[in-house]
Write a protein that binds this DNA or RNA. Structure first.
Length: 837
RNA sequence: GCCCCCGUAGCCCAAUGGCAGAGGCAAACCCCUUAAAAGGGUUGACGUGUGGGUUCGAGUCCCACCGGGGGCACCA
């Protein structure tokens, strides 16, 4: 396997031998220039334009060097759809821009003693050049960079709006800190306890930080997913649902002996309240500190500092033994007055629910593990028919009938939950409650290359937003060593920039020195494309109304609970602000697979990297794009060792020859009427099928159909009516337009050789003639007992009765029936008859 | 541990419950050629991971298992 992979890879890297006949580099040089003059793919904002609109969006790139194979795939897929819509006559918005704030630029700047902008904009230019060669149908006039002050100004403007609505706020608490990147991270950026960017172990720190109140929208983020059903990949929806993690249950109030204030716990199983035998608080919650008995304080504090040392991965491991300490106090069970010992244990999280739980060991595995370890009682209150958890060590979490539970004895789980909530509510000791796994979006970053948070801290007025008319708050000019991470934002050292007058009272004040998470930038960039130069706001409301929402979004699944969640949140806030009129930003979403090599993700350490530019140099843009599309379904991974850009190139050479010969055979405009009927039928059937295939993302199959059409035309030229038959021209022109979606250079060259004017990208999608789609005869399979025994040529609209009679009259059928009358005959006209003897 | 997706030719992949093969790679052979390359053409499953089931009919639907991939996983 490996050897074969290396071998194929070696071939893929070699210069192709078809280059003498078909030279992609020449075609690229020739057409790229002429297309730039033509500017075919500009989206038209004018309301006068009668064409229906479509918005096609590819996730915009981060400028970390040149384009790579992954970009090659996304943009090949996105462009296939965009160009298809152009050919269908839509007014298509297909923009491009750069997600150009972020850490790599800053790290590069520190290394090179430069400004992050130098690295960033140099890379953007490199990528832009590569894009021009790769030839996606972008409307370049809408290009944007999120690191431009004209763009991030609106991040600040939006921050102010969020702030006004109480959706941006500052709070202290434990946050995720990446010791490598020297900044805090949002929950979404911590994967398995590690930094999503750099993989370093994330630690907890107590810091005051800015948040966006995404939890206010948790219900809508979850419920509105019903609208995305069918348009989004199911697994993406599942990931978001899991991430939001809504659960329903009850808040229950417990008195603590010796304290006036009750403590609230959240539980999804209020029905098991009579089974509570102890009480647990999170050691790092302020509550634990408050209620701990003085004579247990020492042990508690020792335990707490022990827990604080653990990394998230260690603490969250399900394998880990339960630990905890008794706090020397008791809670009172509100339903039966029982005294429950209160423990602190790290399996209870401080930031979920209320940081405290009632423990029901019989019916919760975690509580049971803890009870068994510390010798706490186990009381069964749900009779499930399973063995006693106290004996088996396996908690019974299922449904059953309530026992040992006073007023709810005998009830089922559902009934008991309703009843107990009713009882608690009646006594003011509890109520139904909903909880979410989703936390607020931690927004601040202690790094330089991002949007400054537009807040001024005034000793007298407190937090004062920078007035809109003073935006943007532009980053100070800092470079090199000054940007090195120090645990606080580099902006804090820019004294001149930091010290300002308070906009409210005019007194001495200081700017907030953190920058925004760069996911703010990408949460609304697709709205900016609708009116890129607009100065009256982040976007022209009218234009977004016309272009939005996005009909098709293409990008990687790695943003499932990052960008895609944040953007949905932004859209809902903007909807509430009355700025847009749709609920969801992305109607349809496609996650392309990864491009890998030899079964593994490409990486420097494996030495299996494949360079997009090199592939293009060797095989040409068209062959690379075609290979991406033909390799398999778009959502599948492509193993570059399994595919053959060289073969794609050979196919394109073959297709171009067909177009060349057809162009020489007949003049443009020749009517295909009277041309070779068999070829015409192939052409029209191909149109019909490819159209349907493209409508359902079946690009690989669509390309296969184009190959078949090419072969059919080749055959017609060589051993059929010859190149001068008008049906050959029809086939070649159809082929050219279809190929233009995937391989624009070859298609344009062929189009020219067919005598057509430059601009195949807008030539128009061919229409299948229904008259040429009907077959005058169909092969009908006749089965006896499910086995094929005969084939009949029949007219497609044959009646069931006629077909049955015909089938039963067949000699072969008669032979297999050997005279017996059939028991049953299933007729599926015109394709099949099955006779059950 | 729980949930989801996928197993079709040596390989990548097609096939509204109706003849297992559309397309490509690789291979073998043929034509073209002085020869090679380029070009043109021909050839492929004894049954769809395994075992059951539903059905007139199953790659397709259902159940179990095996193998691969992904998601979630102390969230009370």
């Amino acid at each position: 396997m490996c050897e074969r992979g290396v071998f194929l890879w070696a071939i893929n890297r070699g210069k192709s031998r078809v280059s003498e006949q078909y030279d992609p580099q020449t075609l690229q040089a020739k057409w790229q220039r002429r297309w730039e003059e033509l500017d075919l793919f500009r989206a038209e904002d004018s309301p006068e334009d009668p064409r229906p609109r479509k918005y096609m969006l590819d996730m915009f790139p981060y400028p970390s060097g040149d384009l790579h194979m992954g970009h090659g795939e996304v943009f090949a897929i996105g462009d296939m759809l965009a160009r298809y819509w152009f050919q269908l006559g839509y007014n298509v918005l297909h923009p491009i821009g750069w997600d150009s704030f972020g850490l790599p630029a800053e790290n590069a700047a520190i290394r090179r003693n430069a400004h992050p902008a130098e690295w960033t904009y140099a890379n953007i230019e490199t990528q832009a050049e590569s894009f021009r060669r790769y030839a996606p149908s972008f409307d370049w006039s809408r290009r944007l960079h999120t690191s431009d002050p004209e763009y991030y100004r609106w991040n600040q403007w939006l921050f102010n709006r969020f702030y006004e609505r109480g959706l941006a706020y500052r709070k202290g608490g434990l946050v995720n800190w990446c010791p490598n990147d020297q900044t805090v991270l949002a929950n979404e950026q911590v994967v398995q306890g590690k930094c999503e960017r750099c993989g370093a172990d994330v630690v907890r720190r107590e810091l005051t930080q800015w948040y966006f109140k995404i939890t206010d929208y948790a219900d809508r983020l979850l419920d509105d997913m019903a609208m995305l059903e069918g348009g989004w990949p199911e697994r993406l929806l599942t990931m978001q649902r899991n991430w939001i993690g809504r659960s329903t249950g009850a808040d229950v109030l417990f008195e603590i002996e010796g304290r006036d204030e009750p403590v609230t716990v959240y539980t999804t199983r209020p029905d098991t309240l009579f089974g509570a035998t102890f009480f647990v608080v999170a050691p790092d919650a302020p509550l634990a500190e408050r209620i701990c008995a003085p004579d247990h304080r020492e042990a508690f504090e020792a335990y707490r500092s022990e827990v604080a040392k653990l990394s998230d991965i260690e603490r969250l491991s399900t394998e880990k033994e339960k630990t905890g300490v008794f706090l020397g106090v008791h809670a009172i069970n509100p339903v039966n007055g029982e005294r429950l010992p209160v423990w602190a244990a790290d399996y209870v999280l401080s930031d979920y629910g209320h940081g405290a739980i009632m423990a029901v060991p019989a019916h919760d595995q975690r509580d049971l593990d803890f009870a068994l370890k510390f010798g706490l009682p186990v009381r069964v209150v749900v009779h499930t028919g399973m063995a006693d958890p106290g004996e088996t060590g396996t908690a019974t979490a299922g449904d059953g009938s309530m026992v040992n539970s006073g007023p709810i004895d005998g009830l089922s789980k559902e009934e008991a939950i309703a009843k107990i909530i009713e009882i608690l509510a009646g006594e003011g000791k509890g109520r139904a409650a909903v909880n979410f796994r989703l936390r607020d979006w931690l927004l601040s970053r202690q790094r330089f290359w991002g949007t400054p948070i537009p807040i001024i801290h005034c000793p007298d007025c407190g937090e004062v937003p920078v007035p809109d008319e003073q935006l943007p708050v532009v980053l100070p000019d800092m470079r090199g060593e000054a940007l090195a991470p120090k645990g606080v934002s580099p902006l804090a050292t820019a004294t001149e920039w930091v010290n300002v007058d308070c906009p409210k009272c005019g007194g001495a004040a200081q700017r907030d020195t953190d920058t925004m998470d760069t996911f703010v930038d990408s949460s609304w960039y697709f709205l900016r494309y609708c009116s890129p130069g607009y100065e009256g706001g982040p976007f022209d409301v009218e234009q977004v109304r016309k272009w939005g929402p996005i009909d098709q979004y293409v990008g990687g699944v790695e943003h499932a609970v990052l960008h895609l969640l944040y953007a949905r949140f932004f859209i809902k806030v903007l909807y509430d602000m009355g700025m847009i009129d749709f609920y969801e930003p992305f109607v349809r979403m496609l996650n392309q697979g990864q491009v890998v090599n030899m079964g593994k993700a490409m990486s420097k350490s494996l030495g299996n990297g494949v360079d997009l530019g090199e592939q293009i140099d060797n095989f040409g843009v068209d062959a690379v794009r075609l290979t991406m599309l033909f390799a398999g379904p778009p959502e599948d991974d492509i193993d570059w060792a399994d595919v053959s850009p060289g073969a794609s190139q050979k196919f394109l050479a073959r297709a171009l020859r067909v177009m060349t010969e057809a162009g020489a055979g007949t003049p443009p405009g020749a009517s295909p009427e009277g041309g070779d009927l068999a070829l015409r039928k192939v052409t029209h059937r191909t149109i019909d099928e490819v159209t349907k295939l493209l409508d359902s993302y079946r690009f690989n199959v669509a390309v296969a159909r184009m190959m078949e059409l090419t072969s059919a035309a080749r055959k017609a030229i060589d051993s059929g009516p010859g190149a001068s038959d008008p049906a050959v021209r029809e086939a070649a022109e159809t082929l050219a337009v279809m190929l233009s979606l995937a391989t624009p250079y070859t298609a344009e060259e062929g189009w020219e050789r067919l005598g057509r004017p430059v601009g195949i990208g807008r030539a128009g999608w061919p229409k299948a003639d229904p008259a040429l789609l009907v077959q005058e005869s169909v092969t009908c399979v006749v089965q006896v007992a499910g086995k094929v025994r005969d084939r009949l040529d029949v007219v497609p609209d044959i009646s069931e009765a006629d077909l049955e009679a015909l089938a039963l009259a067949s000699d072969k059928v008669k032979a297999h029936l050997s005279g017996a009358a059939p028991r049953r005959v299933i007729v599926r006209a015109p394709k099949l008859v099955n006779i059950v003897p």
